[in-house]
Structure formats: structure tokens, C-alpha cells
Computed example of a mutant assay.
Amino acid sequence: MAYVLDTAGLPAGDRVEAVHTAMMYASAPCHVIHEDPARPVYARMGVWDLGDANIFTHRSSGIRLLRTAKLARQDAMPVIALSVQQRSTGFLEQGRAGPFVCARGELLGVDLSAAYDYSWSGDGAAGCLQIPVDRLGLPIDVIRSALGRLPASPLYRLVTTHITALSQNPDRITSDQSAATVAAASIDLCRALLASAARTDRHSSATRAVLAETLLTQIRAYVRQNLSDPDLTPARIATTHNISLRHLYKLCADAGLSLEQWIITERLQGARHDLLTPANRTRPIAAIARAWGFRDPTHFTRRFRARYNSTPSQLRASSTEARTPGDPVL
């Protein structure tokens, strides 16, 4: 994938039309209204395929994207966008809700298949994940109900951080061999966010089923974020997710997962990566072990040898010798 548009190489007189054409391709057809068309506008947009979804980034001078009801009726495939405001402040009006103000670093949800009015002033930017509604496995009324109250979900900050990371380095993420796994996990996280935000008595049966299906995804994400904490225990994981320890173990068993072994494996993989990173050549092995949640260096070495058939010091020495044959082993 390449950038859809970068106006830096275009004459000023051609930019307004170029931005409109690019927006038609990158997101939903809409009227593109520039804050100050008398001055040269600028824009840079990009779209990257990520499985069944896509990452869309947009930075430009002040702009208003107006999608009318007439334009909305022309689309056959509903799509939602979960967008993190990266520069300036975003303003969204959609449905009967009043204007939604999205500060920098916050997340907003837009139903791209419906009418909306979205804008920012001055130098603004946003990065978003665009997902077809049929990939979310949620009724459209549940999704629309959720979009207006995303901050009410306990997953709001987690998903905001995730989408921010996706939009900061989309080239590398989408070209990596793990892109398909990232895509599935991203859709699953967004699905859980919407389901939890939409939880009401009227929708409780639909959202409860979705939350149950995505709970293990939430648990995995939580564990990965807390691998460095030596006090990360099954009991703490269960308490954090408001489930019993027994239910936690059942979720893992149903997925063919040994929780404690998986945590140790994730920690060992992180430690191994750090040991092989040239920038860490002088960093003490004990410090690396502590950074990945191992309090006892002896325990760490024993687990590491069992996993990789090599001690941490042996791995570091062989790696250093392979990179720089004449250098002393650190």
C-alpha cells in the first residue's frame, strides 16, 4: 500500500479536488469543505489493508467532512470507523446526539454508512481503524447505540492505545508476518468495546454473548501489558476482569491454554528478544529478567534453559560472537 494522497507535490490550485477524490476512495463519500479554501490547503492520507479492516490516516489543514442522508443511502456495505484524534480537536455530529468534542488523544466512533458532520480547525490529524459491520458480529442497533458512549466502556483506553499504535506505524504492522493475527485481534477488541459500551437492559442478551466470546482476548491483552509485574497472578487477572478464578481457568482450558505456562512463555520470549538486541549488550542479565517479571535470577535461568536449551549468558555470548567475531563477549 502507498499513500492515497500527499498534496506536497501538487500545485495549490489542484489540491481541493485532489483531496475530495482521495477521500472518496479512502473513506466514505462526503462533501469536503475546507476551512480556508482561499489559502493553499494541504493533506496527506493513507490507507493500509489489515485483514478484513483497514487503517486510515489523515492529516490536513482545517477541514469539514459532511455526509448527507442522500449520500448515505448510496452505500450498500455499512462500515464503522474508530478514530483517535492526533492533532487539533475533532467535532462530530451524528444522529440525534448533540455535537461530540474529541480532544487530542481521545477516541470517537463514526457510522460511515450514515449521515454525519465531522470537522477540525487548523492543523489536524487522526488515525482510525475502519471495519465492515458484518465483521463485528453485532446488530447494527447495538453498534449505533455504542458509538455515542464509547468512554463508558472499561476497554476505552485499551482500544484507544491500540488504534494509536496501529496508525503510528501502519507500514511495518501490515507488512509483518503476524498481520493476520493483529487484524483478528483488533477486530475482536473493537467488537468487545462496542458490546460493553452498548450494554443496556434492552441489549443485554446480545452484548453478554459477545463479551463472553471476547473475554479471553481482553485477558490476553491485559496479561501482555503487565508481563513485567512479578505480582501478575491468576487471582489478580480474575479480579481485574470481574470473574472467578474457576471461570478464568475454564476460559483458558476451553481455548487449550495453560495460563501460567503461557505467561511464562511470553515472558521468556520477551527476555530472549532483549538479550538478542544489540542495544542491550551491556545490560545485566538479572536486570532483563526483572524487567520481564522474574524476581529470582536462578529461577529465570532454569526456565530459560528448559525453553531454549541454552542459558541466557550462552545465548548472549553466541549472538555477540556471530555479530562481531573479534569483539570480547560482554
Rank of each mutant, 00 (worst) to 15 (best):
residue 68 T to H: 05
residue 69 A to Q: 14
residue 72 A to L: 04
residue 74 Q to Y: 14
residue 75 D to M: 09
residue 76 A to T: 15
residue 76 A to R: 10
residue 76 A to M: 08
residue 77 M to V: 12
residue 79 V to R: 09
residue 82 L to E: 06
residue 82 L to R: 02
residue 82 L to A: 06
residue 84 V to H: 02
residue 84 V to R: 06
residue 85 Q to P: 11
residue 85 Q to T: 11
residue 87 R to H: 15
residue 89 T to M: 00
residue 91 F to K: 00
residue 91 F to P: 02
residue 93 E to V: 13
residue 94 Q to E: 11
residue 94 Q to V: 05
residue 95 G to H: 10
residue 98 G to A: 11
residue 98 G to D: 11
residue 100 F to K: 07
residue 101 V to R: 07
residue 101 V to M: 03
residue 101 V to L: 00
residue 102 C to H: 01
residue 103 A to Y: 10
residue 103 A to C: 05
residue 104 R to P: 07
residue 105 G to D: 08
residue 105 G to R: 06
residue 107 L to V: 05
residue 107 L to C: 07
residue 109 G to T: 08
residue 109 G to H: 11
residue 110 V to S: 00
residue 110 V to C: 06
residue 112 L to H: 06
residue 113 S to M: 01
residue 114 A to D: 10
residue 114 A to I: 01
residue 114 A to H: 08
residue 114 A to R: 10
residue 115 A to Q: 09
residue 116 Y to H: 13
residue 116 Y to V: 01
residue 118 Y to F: 13
residue 118 Y to A: 04
residue 118 Y to L: 07
residue 118 Y to Q: 02
residue 120 W to S: 02
residue 120 W to E: 02
residue 121 S to I: 05
residue 121 S to T: 12
residue 121 S to M: 02
residue 122 G to A: 02
residue 122 G to N: 04
residue 123 D to N: 13
residue 126 A to G: 10
residue 128 C to A: 14
residue 128 C to W: 00
residue 128 C to D: 04
residue 128 C to K: 06
residue 129 L to N: 07
residue 129 L to A: 02
residue 130 Q to K: 05
residue 131 I to P: 08
residue 131 I to C: 07
residue 133 V to Q: 14
residue 135 R to I: 02
residue 135 R to C: 14
residue 135 R to D: 14
residue 135 R to M: 09
residue 136 L to P: 09
residue 137 G to T: 01
residue 137 G to A: 06
residue 138 L to R: 08
residue 138 L to W: 13
residue 139 P to S: 14
residue 140 I to H: 15
residue 140 I to K: 11
residue 141 D to K: 04
residue 146 A to F: 04
residue 146 A to Q: 01
residue 147 L to C: 13
residue 147 L to M: 10
residue 148 G to V: 13
residue 148 G to R: 10
residue 149 R to Q: 15
residue 149 R to Y: 03
residue 150 L to V: 12
residue 151 P to E: 02
residue 151 P to H: 03
residue 151 P to W: 00
residue 151 P to I: 00
residue 152 A to T: 15
residue 152 A to P: 01
residue 153 S to L: 08
residue 154 P to I: 01
residue 155 L to C: 11
residue 157 R to V: 14
residue 159 V to I: 13
residue 160 T to V: 05
residue 161 T to A: 14
residue 161 T to L: 10
residue 164 T to N: 11
residue 164 T to E: 10
residue 165 A to I: 00
residue 165 A to V: 06
residue 168 Q to D: 14
residue 169 N to Y: 07
residue 170 P to N: 07
residue 171 D to P: 10
residue 171 D to C: 04
residue 172 R to H: 11
residue 172 R to I: 08
residue 173 I to S: 02
residue 173 I to V: 12
residue 174 T to D: 01
residue 175 S to E: 10
residue 175 S to H: 13
residue 175 S to Q: 11
residue 176 D to T: 03
residue 176 D to P: 03
residue 176 D to G: 13
residue 177 Q to Y: 13
residue 177 Q to A: 09
